[in-house]
């Protein structure tokens, strides 16, 4: 990569499995930046979870998710934006509890998409308003 950051933009419709298009693009870019195989998978999973959250919660009229990738020498940034009604972090963190009420409550408490994203990425920042939500994520290359 050169010293100049490169930008790639992608817009996907909120159709089933379209998060895979975002994941594929992220995979190509991460490989271009020489991220390791495991890190590429982590980036794919993070963008999948972010897109699914937008699909499920945004209620946007245009039914689109806009993704801006910024490729820097030492990190990959991506911003996932929808033009929906906005969403609280509490909702993102707790609305998609895993499974139905059952035997093992600790499985339920921990099973959340945002938790996966935060555990795999270096920085996660969520900005939400009644005009939409942007999730900014940074994955840094290991030295």
């Amino acid at each position: 990569m050169s010293d100049t950051a490169k930008q790639v933009t992608l817009t996907i419709p909120m159709y089933p499995d379209m998060e895979l298009a975002a994941a594929k693009t992220a995979s190509v870019l991460a490989e271009l930046m020489n991220f390791g195989e495991g890190e590429v998978e982590e980036i794919q999973l993070a963008i999948i979870e972010t897109c699914i959250n937008a699909f499920e919660h945004s209620k946007s009229d245009d039914q689109e998710v806009h993704i801006d990738f910024l490729l820097k020498d030492d990190e990959l940034q991506f911003k996932v934006t929808d033009r929906g009604v906005g969403i609280s972090t509490d909702t993102l963190d707790g609305s998609r509890l895993l499974g139905s009420p059952g035997v093992h409550t600790d499985l339920r408490k921990r099973g959340r998409g945002l938790q996966i994203i935060k555990s795999l990425m270096d920085e996660v920042d969520i900005e939400s308003s009644p005009n939409g939500t942007t999730v900014k994520i940074i994955k840094r290359k290991k030295p």
């Binding site: 998060e19 979870e49 699914i52 895993l98 499974g99 035997v103 093992h104 499985l107 339920r108 099973g111």
Partner: peptide, 20 residues
Amino acid sequence: TLINSIGISILIEIIEALHE
């Protein structure tokens, strides 16, 4: 190739069904 959190939720349901 990839497992999202909804897929994980279904795996949890299978775990619970077996434990029952």
